[in-house]
Design a protein around this nucleic acid. Sequence first.
DNA 1: CTTTACGTTTACGTTAACGTAAGCTATGTG
DNA 2: CACATAGCTTACGTTAACGTAAACGTAAAG
Lengths: 130, 130
Amino acid sequence: MQKQYSIRELADEFDVTTRTLRFYEEKGLLSPLRTNQMRSYTSADRTRLRLILRGKRLGLSLEESSKIILMYDQRASNDEQLQALVAKIREKRQQLAEQQKDLELMLLDLRDAEERCLDALSNNQNEDVA
Amino acid sequence: MQKQYSIRELADEFDVTTRTLRFYEEKGLLSPLRTNQMRSYTSADRTRLRLILRGKRLGLSLEESSKIILMYDQRASNDEQLQALVAKIREKRQQLAEQQKDLELMLLDLRDAEERCLDALSNNQNEDVA
DNA sequence: CTTTACGTTTACGTTAACGTAAGCTATGTG
DNA sequence: CACATAGCTTACGTTAACGTAAACGTAAAG
């Protein structure tokens, strides 16, 4: 017997609005059970929501996240479909690897900018002393 | 004497539309020179464009990218402003570090998914043989 | 000299991802 | 019992980031 979550519980836990949860459902990203009309979220829904929000933080659209989630829980299909899926997964991994590079570059730039700021500050110190 | 770029050259180089470049200008992200009404982009504009697009790939809004760019080329101001800037830079670096974690998690999940696919494929092989 | 190509401005259209509000129902609570 | 709380549906509103189209200028090419 798994725990079920009300829409408010889930919304509070992940810091989103109930509107957002209903919207994700409308878009087919979540599919909570219904207990006399009220939505009842399972731990599977929680997991999916976590993945969706992680995708958002990485700049993915809901549709992209949706596709990636489908890759995670592939329904064991035939060889052809499996191979196509592997190809998709590899492509996405490739994209993410590129994104990793972008991220590191931006971090380097920011490290640089910070250093220059600190240099400027210590220079101002020296001027004050001189 | 630096090379100047027409709007089309820049658009083609970065694979964006001219509309996009004009839009970025309208938003204050670019400010090309004008040679008898025509836009003339310098290498500084190119750099800014590179940064904007890198930001986009990381899921940043144009406004966020704009702010980050301002951090890069800080006009040496007074100590107070410099310290505020350092704080901003550190905050952004922190955010990016979190994003790095998210990215690695997603990569791990995809590695996992790929492996499961490959397992399923080799299982199908065995069944065929048996 | 007209066509073609590239540039300009102005302005309305579009999509994603929700926000917001109205109006209804069911369930406790003083 | 009144009413506050939480949920539901339906539907219109909003913002970012461009797309698309009209209407015009200019310069090289046939």
